[in-house]
Amino acid sequence: MQHYTMNLTLKVWRQKNSKSQGAFETFQVKDISSEMSFLEMIDVLNEQLVSEGKEPIAFDHDCREGICGMCSMYINGRAHGPWHETTTCQLHMREYKNGDTIVIEPWRASAFPVIKDLAVDRTAFDRIIAAGGYISVNTGNAVDANCLPVEKQQADDAFAAATCIGCGACVAACPNASAMLFVSAKVSHLALLPQGEPERKKRVVNMISQMDTEGFGSCTNIGACEAECPKGISLENIARLNREYIGSMLSGSATGV
């Protein structure tokens, strides 16, 4: 693909903190290379703002190779931008052409309050994990891995669920701001493996209760989460979460959950 440069108009959400009212601010960026990543383009804008003595735009980023789950922009109405199964850091400027206007918003959900500008507080996910996304491991010598046979398909499904990087795009994309896809991935990945068995019945209920407490919406099977997930987490995980929940409901212990 031919390299080219472009001038863009950016409408970026600016918000001082979670308490204040935010608003869009319009910026012009010039000579953006089609080879740049989206975040590098924001870096250019921030350099420009710093040199003008203005406050740079706050945004989350870390690994910039699509595996950490930190980047989180809602670009022209799409979580992580228009590309399928990519994070914002993997989106490249060749998607855009000279003269385009790009609207950049933070994840919007009451469970993800804005920290500043485009950075949101996703610690609600950490609390959901703490409520049940763990397994019991006995101390002592490491057990031989071959002692626990796992069926290949189960292992593959567990691995596919475990690819969830917890970025929160599912919440951002969901019209109900539901965290079901995230919770279902975390529940699935442990429910499919023998190591997850001891806490199985408690895990699903505790994680869902925590999800409700955090103020996420309810899942209505719309599927926007699956369409926007950068890791391609499938709605089948939500079906599995529902099965786990019904299983816990019908045969979980009456106390202790």
Partner: peptide, 21 residues
């Protein structure tokens, strides 16, 4: 109504039919 209240600040641009029916 409960779900509607979970996103008090609306998106300026929404995905519309691109991600769901």
């Amino acid at each position: 109504f409960a779900n509607n209240s979970k996103r008090p600040s609306r998106y300026a641009v929404s995905a519309g039919n691109a991600t769901s029916k």
